[in-house]
Design a protein around this nucleic acid. Structure first.
Lengths: 216, 216
DNA sequence: TAATAAATTTAGACTTGTCTAAAAAATTAT
DNA sequence: ATAATTTTTTAGACAAGTCTAAATTTATTA
């Protein structure tokens, strides 16, 4: 099996790949809170194991076996997050760090049984899709609410910023997964938005709006 | 916090302490499947952290803070074992290795909520007591069935050998936790025993009998 | 109680994953 | 298109945890 460090590198590379096809050394260093030199060392090891495609100075991509491992770790992370929220009643902003540890538990049988125990959830508490045991998932077609115009509606279905601060802010504003929102006004000056959620008006900045995702 | 290796040493020392008050370097090496020289190195580190009392060549004991950590790890191990058996329906001989990984998940809040989720179980699937969050537990007064004489009865409540092989053997013989047994005969020649469990007669060796624990 | 055996520790080395400082390559801006 | 800047890699070092081989201490036994 792979070491904990290797797993964390693969997971980070996967997440970064969603925005840029080639992931740079510095991006990985920033994501993992480490130094570029350390990243270079690890990239060589991962390339030796054929988990990434790596050419000096050119950034990296995951190989299919690297991606498979990354998706399995993400599956575990999201299933444990679901467990923590749905069964142990943690709040959505409390579960990330615990799941960071739990995602490294190795048993495949365990995670399949956990999946069954919770009746095969499709999304984690933040709206992110949970890959199945083969790594497949429907990538959801979400849009930031900034895509909406006045009087248009949507259902809150995900976030782009997973920070505790943002999640707590949303919780406090009642802006949680599944809620139906309607844009009642867009302030021209700063592009902030006034939303209607369950008969209440909520004013959010453009900054926040960009990180709140909906299905239309 | 402590490293994974440190936690495993503390746990092993705790278990070995139950049989011998001073635990030797070689005992620890055997338990952890490592070399005596490695153990000596680690013992120095643990002594520096005041988790064990260590004097060269004299073996070790846990300090109270070392014991507290050991009991917390054991609490986590046994609660996760209970979870795996009761909620995910694993068999009692399948859960040890998974729990070995899960016992190192650090969140105290998580384990307290898990405890509550399962309604505060007192014993793990092998009959071992689960310490509460303060490390307290009733040490059960179990005896091997070799303590019984003919026609005496008891309730199976624990095992001394936790190996997969022994657990599977017991399972196959219906000798599981909670079953009431009666000794119907003791063979003088080899001290093997014939038990009656739910109207069935079962013949077990003295070797096995010594590892099967009951309350009278 | 001296010799032998067993247990334990020390010394020196190796691996993994990290770091800093310096060198090399790639990018950007003049 | 060359200089300046940024990014990446290399070189060398360190901590944690482990190992083998040798030295030392303790225990056993004759």
């Amino acid at each position: 099996m792979n070491t904990l460090a290797e797993e964390n590198y693969l997971k980070s590379i996967y997440h970064l790949s969603l925005n840029d096809s080639n992931v740079s050394t510095n991006q990985i260093a920033a994501a993992l809170n480490t130094k570029a030199a350390s990243v270079t060392d690890m990239l060589k090891k991962l390339a030796d194991k054929e988990l990434i495609n790596y050419e000096k100075y050119q950034g990296v991509t995951l190989t299919s076996s690297g991606e498979k491992i990354a998706l399995h770790i993400i599956r575990k992370h999201r299933l444990w997050e679901y467990f923590l929220v749905e069964k142990l009643h943690f709040k959505w902003d409390e579960v990330h760090d615990m799941a960071e540890e739990m995602e490294h538990i190795s048993s495949v049988e365990l995670i399949d049984r956990l999946d069954k125990f919770m009746d095969y959830p499709k999304h984690d508490p933040h709206g992110d899709p949970i890959p199945d045991r083969d790594g497949n998932f429907k990538k959801h077609e979400l849009q930031p609410i900034t895509a909406l115009r006045v009087n248009e509606t949507g259902i809150i279905s995900g976030v782009r910023d997973h920070s505790t601060a943002f999640l707590q802010y949303l919780e406090k504003q009642q802006l949680t997964i599944g809620k139906k929102i309607k844009v009642t006004e867009i302030i021209e000056y700063d592009h902030s938005m006034i939303l209607e959620v369950e008969q209440t008006k909520i004013h959010i900045s453009r900054e926040a709006a960009k990180n709140l995702l909906i299905v239309i």
